[in-house]
Amino acid sequence: MHEYSIIQSLVDSVAAAVGTRTGAVVHGVHVTIGELAGVDCTLLATAYDVFRPGTLCERAELTIDRTPARWECPRCRRAIERGAFLRCALCNEPAHLATGDEIMLQRIELEVA
């Protein structure tokens, strides 16, 4: 259940981004979570709802974009088929994780005076 500690870090990140904009109200928080990031999106959403009252994110909807894991050959860039050995059948290179391990705060939406 590290999702709670990730939400704590998320709220801190939002606060840092809002910074000194006094009176700014956060209405939306958009995050990207990779399939192989080790984060459960349902638990993350629950943790956010539990955590947000009384914080800067109280009125902000959380939107979670899930990016699929994409392993590819670092040489020829061919994608490795899902569930296959993580090695390029043509180049014999160990695969590289191109996308799928992100735990990113993409953007926030602020109401400005």
Binding site: I6, S9, L10, D12, S13, A17, H27, G28, V31, I103, M104, L105, Q106, R107, I108, E109, L110, E111, V112
Partner: peptide, 17 residues
């Protein structure tokens, strides 16, 4: 209507860690 401004961040949530 509320005037919303998007703020692009693209920061790692666990940057502090």
């Amino acid at each position: 209507d509320v005037n919303l401004v998007p703020l692009e961040l693209q920061t790692r949530i666990l940057a502090r860690n």
